[in-house]
């Protein structure tokens, strides 16, 4: 039954496409029919993380508003590079989309020696989905109670203290390196496989300082098992209205947010870009907004031009940080 009805639908859509092509329909006519079949949304991470959740939330909304199912395909590996590379190689017909992010489309360009794709020119960047800051937190027994105290302590005892991050070349690692460079601090990096094990060791007092996604530590900050010192966004975060930004503490250049966006292979027809940008913006400002804000994330939805400009800015910014911190992935 399922097979039959599905196949029939598929058959019709295929014949419609063939017919359209045969009659020499213009690009516009095709796009008006867009989407005429299932859309694959490549999420370049294994399922379960925040990025995956982002992708799925948006896919769910787009399925509703586009009238075609948007299927999430997890293509994890190499910090998002595998999925992003696969997406870059596919046809720019609007049926392959990719969840772009700070790793695969900004940091990796600075940390990996041989990237198989260019994060800016190989993609059509459609719109931003959400962004959120990292947070610097410490074990409650640690001496520093404020960011300034942490700075003073690290200056007094350079190289004595350690910080845990969710991995070499992760957005949290890069944010901390940026802060260290601007503030002239020497704090050693202890790298983990993801945010959860890093948090575990800081909770257990094995490492005193933690930098990770701001939302992940909320329950532990509430219960007093971690003390949050600062967030890395340009403004304070809704989850921690009393916690200052690093910028407020006197380092206005230290702004680092983890972001995700919607992108497609380069050369996506402009009307499809427009359609997807509008629908995604509606979704993140509408039905998905509450869920994003519960995670301390700021909804995106900017124009394609602005998002493209933002991505190239991020690539340049993190390349500089990676070079001066000597971080390479390969």
């Amino acid at each position: 039954m399922i097979l039959n009805s599905h196949n029939r639908r598929k058959f019709f859509s295929i014949s419609a496409t063939l017919l359209a092509a045969a009659c020499g329909f213009s690009e516009i006519a095709l796009a008006q029919a867009y989407p005429s079949k299932q859309i694959t949304f490549v999420v370049p991470f294994p399922p379960g993380g925040t990025s995956d959740a982002m992708g799925r939330l948006v896919a769910q909304e787009l399925s509703k508003t586009l009238g075609q199912s948007v299927i999430v395909e997890n293509r994890g590996g190499a910090n998002g590079n595998i999925g992003a590379a696969a997406a870059a190689r596919s046809k720019p017909d609007g049926y392959t989309l990719v969840l772009s992010g700070i790793g695969s489309h900004a940091i990796n360009a600075g940390t990996y020696k041989n990237m198989s794709f260019d994060p800016v020119t190989d993609f059509t960047h459609i719109t931003s989905i959400a962004s959120g800051p990292n947070a610097i937190a410490v074990h409650p027994d640690f001496l520093a109670r404020t960011l300034q105290e942490l700075i003073d302590l690290a200056r007094k005892e350079p190289g004595k203290h350690n910080y845990a991050s969710s991995g070499t070349g992760s957005s949290s690692n890069m944010a901390m390196e940026l802060f260290k460079q601007k503030a002239g601090l020497k704090i050693d990096h202890i790298s983990y496989r993801g945010g959860a094990p890093a948090m575990t060791d800081v909770l257990g007092g094995q490492v005193p300082i933690l930098i990770t996604n701001a939302d992940a530590i909320l329950p532990h900050v509430k219960s007093g098992k971690l003390r949050i010192l600062a967030v890395t966004g340009s403004e304070r975060n809704v989850l921690y209205p009393d916690t200052p930004t690093i910028a407020e503490a006197g380092y206005p250049d230290v702004v680092a947010v983890s972001w995700t966006g919607l992108s497609a292979p380069a050369g996506l027809p402009s009307d499809i870009v427009k359609r997807l940008q509008e629908e995604t913006a509606k979704a993140v400002k509408g039905p998905v907004r509450q869920r994003l804000e519960a995670l301390g994330l700021t909804p995106g939805g900017v124009s394609s031009q602005d998002f493209t400009k933002f991505v190239s800015g991020e690539v340049a910014k993190w390349k500089a940080v990676a070079q001066s911190a000597g971080i390479t992935a390969e």
Partner: peptide, 11 residues
């Protein structure tokens, strides 16, 4: 095909 592709959605 029925179980894995249709049922479980293996891409």
């Amino acid at each position: 095909v029925l179980v894995f592709i249709k049922g479980l959605g293996v891409p």
